Simulated assay, not measured.
Amino acid sequence: MKTYRLQFEQKLPIPLAETWDFFTSPLNLAKITPANMGFTVTSPYDAQSKVYPGMIITYKIKPLFGISMDWMTEITHVKDQDYFVDEQRFGPYALWHHEHHFKEIDGGVHMTDILNYAIPYGVIGRLSNALLVRKEILKIFAHREKAINEIFGVYRR
């Protein structure tokens, strides 16, 4: 199985505690996901819920061509105000391992996302990644960066 790795970095002009509070709430993911993906958290969490190891989060999502599907991730690791990891348990990928890292910097937070993923179906999956999937993931993270800047402002230091 061919695996792929993408890394995204962004600086936020807010304190670490505020950053951590926002990104560890499962419901906030919908706020930074493109609307056309129809992303909805279907787990019974509320705005006060925060990630913890073993937490299962279920979603409805339309990753490609408007086709709705179920997705389930598990929060596998959490180190308070440092990092957390979500891994797909059911969904469109053969592998999805997403690390979220947070580091306090002068005037804000440096956030790093490390995504390791794989597409099923062998050669067809590799071709799909080259033609479509990788580009869609890059679009999602570009949208996410823009949405985060709109919510928190642009880091200027």
Score class of each variant (00 low, 15 high):
129 N>Y: 02
80 D>F: 10
157 R>C: 13
101 H>L: 15
144 R>P: 00
62 K>R: 12
35 A>W: 01
84 F>Q: 01
79 K>R: 14
66 G>W: 07
2 K>F: 06
30 A>V: 06
138 L>Q: 09
50 K>I: 08
11 K>P: 07
119 I>Y: 01
144 R>H: 10
50 K>R: 14
42 T>V: 15
143 H>P: 03
9 E>R: 11
81 Q>G: 10
68 S>W: 15
104 E>I: 12
36 N>F: 11
119 I>N: 00
131 L>F: 09
15 P>G: 12
20 W>M: 01
39 F>L: 05
93 Y>R: 03
27 L>V: 04
119 I>A: 03
39 F>I: 02
155 Y>E: 01
22 F>W: 11
80 D>M: 09
21 D>R: 02
146 K>F: 09
149 N>S: 13
53 P>D: 14
81 Q>I: 12
66 G>Y: 07
58 T>R: 03
58 T>M: 07
87 E>S: 12
110 H>P: 06
41 V>G: 02
19 T>F: 01
84 F>T: 03
45 Y>A: 14
29 L>C: 03
11 K>V: 10
22 F>M: 11
50 K>S: 04
120 P>C: 08
21 D>V: 04
116 N>M: 06
42 T>M: 09
26 P>H: 03
152 F>G: 00
105 I>E: 06
123 V>H: 08
128 S>P: 02
1 M>D: 15
1 M>F: 10
16 L>C: 13
44 P>A: 15
145 E>F: 09
69 M>K: 08
16 L>G: 04
142 A>W: 05
136 E>P: 03
83 Y>M: 10
90 F>P: 03
24 T>H: 11
52 Y>I: 10
73 T>D: 02
156 R>M: 10
34 P>I: 04
36 N>Y: 05
135 K>A: 09
140 I>G: 02
154 V>N: 06
87 E>G: 05
73 T>V: 09
127 L>D: 04
54 G>A: 15
134 R>D: 03
60 K>I: 13
56 I>L: 11
18 E>V: 08
136 E>M: 07
151 I>R: 04
